[in-house]
């Protein structure tokens, strides 16, 4: 009892402050979850409902009502063949409702979703995979250098360079690739123009730091005793690195590569300046290509609901890709190398 009375007189106030502040922190967490759940929920529901067989197997189709006659075969060599909405306007009288102009406009706006994003999926996969193929040797070898020869001025500079690259806004990388490749004069004196490979090179800038730093971190987790055991068996440093150290840390390196892939697949800003986008299926990396983030970006602003649907659908595919990779990485790292 005497203890109770010796408790400081402002105990009630302190307790109240404690409760209020803890409540505020809890509210902050709740507050943050709301928009995040909303974003994921909207993309899941609207984007998910956009998915059907056609969405994955067809390329872009301009929005028009079914009764509209085909405006003719689209030239597969012209990436902008059906980017031109003038074709739509030209074919308006054929809607069968050649009455008031408003009705015609409404007709197109109510057109059911058509076409799919096969071109975008193929484009994203090609561009990102090529970028990964360029970034992997650079990132892994640089990571090996950082972990096996950690204490020299070059290593410090490389770590610094990785920080610079991973902190740089992706638009800067886009600008660099645009000037270096898209705007560069080719052998015929003409600018090289927008190409898929330019996008891959831009993404390489963003993937290299991720792969380098993950490889370094993972290789550092390999116990020193493992290296010493290999050296004691008579192996040279390079032999022990490639046959003992790297295989031990392989799952971690793969983790870094997957994360880099997920990051690259979602990048949009560099692609605007290098790949440009296309509405037809292109597999030639020396031509402008389509990509999922570009489809999302361009068709979000479109006035046609059927194109908006494509935007939501590709946003859904992108988000699933990113979430899936991250969850897979989480599961893989939880059981093997405890990275944290």
């Amino acid at each position: 009892m005497s203890l109770k009375s010796s408790v400081s007189p402002n105990y009630a106030r302190r307790k109240a402050v404690d409760l209020i502040m803890r409540g505020l922190v809890l509210i902050a967490t709740g507050l943050a979850i709301v928009p995040l759940v909303l974003i994921i929920g909207y993309v899941m529901i609207i984007g998910g409902s956009a998915l059907n067989w056609e969405f994955f197997t067809d390329i872009y189709q301009p929005p028009m009502t079914v009764s509209m006659p085909n405006t003719g075969p689209i030239d597969p060599n012209d990436p902008f063949a059906n980017l031109d909405l003038g074709a739509l306007v030209g074919s308006e009288p054929a809607t069968g409702q050649a009455g008031a102009g408003d009705e015609k406009g409404a007709d197109i706006l109510e057109a059911p979703p058509r076409g799919g994003v096969l071109h975008g999926i193929v484009g994203t996969m090609l561009i990102t995979t090529v970028a990964l193929l360029i970034a992997m040797p650079i990132g892994i070898m640089a990571g090996i250098f950082l972990s096996e020869f950690p204490d020299n001025s070059v290593a410090t500079t490389v770590r610094f360079a990785c920080d610079v690259l991973s902190g740089a806004p992706s638009i800067i990388v886009g600008v660099t690739a645009y000037i270096l490749i898209v705007n560069a004069k080719g052998p015929d004196g003409q600018p090289l123009g927008f190409t898929g490979i330019a996008g891959s090179i831009a993404l390489t800038f963003l993937m290299v730091p991720t792969i380098t730093r993950t490889t370094e971190e993972v290789l550092k987790l390999v116990p020193e005793a493992t290296r010493e055991a290999a050296l004691a068996m008579g192996a040279t440093t390079w032999y022990s690195t490639f046959t003992v150290v790297v295989p031990t840390a392989l799952s971690g390196i793969v983790t870094g590569i997957m994360l880099a892939f997920a990051r690259g697949a979602g990048e949009t800003a560099p692609l605007i300046m290098t790949v440009l986008g296309s509405n037809v299926l292109m597999t030639n990396l020396l031509e402008p290509m389509a990509a999922l983030p570009l489809i999302t970006y361009r068709y979000t602003e479109s006035p046609f609901p059927s194109e908006n649907t494509l935007a939501w659908g590709s946003a859904f595919v992108l988000m699933m890709l990113v979430l899936l990779v991250n969850i897979l990485v989480r599961i893989a790292t939880r059981n093997r190398l405890r990275m944290r």
């Binding site: 979602g266 970006y297 979000t300």
Partner: peptide, 9 residues
Amino acid sequence: AIPSVIYGV
């Protein structure tokens, strides 16, 4: 990790 274009949409 969610791409920024999704926040944009």
